[in-house]
């Protein structure tokens, strides 16, 4: 499978990444290798095999609806690049 520059641009856009032209060419090359590696799987005959979504066969892991203490707000905000007294501060969102 070939990874085109357009594909890299599309993925970079979705991931909100800005890439230089050199980076894009390098990534196209690297991504092609990664996808090519995974492509090996398509050589297998999986007719009638159900898709695996979880490696361990567990189900219905549920918890009771019981209150637990939340985190302290200061702790929650300590890694925020920018903040005000109570909230995360992010660049202006225009709707």
């Amino acid at each position: 499978m070939t990874i085109t520059i357009e594909t890299v641009q599309h993925i970079a856009h979705l991931a909100k990444l800005q890439l230089s032209e050199t980076e894009m060419f390098r990534l196209a090359d690297e991504m092609e290798k990664i996808v090519g590696f995974a492509d090996k799987l398509s050589e297998l005959d999986i007719e009638g095999v159900k898709p695996t979504t979880h490696a361990v066969a567990v189900q219905n892991v549920l918890r009771d609806d019981e209150l637990k203490p939340s985190y302290d707000r200061e702790k929650i905000l300590q890694n925020a690049p920018e903040r005000d007294a109570a909230c995360f501060l992010v660049p202006k969102v225009v709707e």
């Binding site: 109570a86 909230c87 501060l89 992010v90 660049p91 202006k92 969102v93």
Partner: peptide, 8 residues
């Protein structure tokens, strides 16, 4: 320029 505050 005025930012946006996130309350989770």
């Amino acid at each position: 320029a005025g930012g946006t505050l996130a309350d989770d």
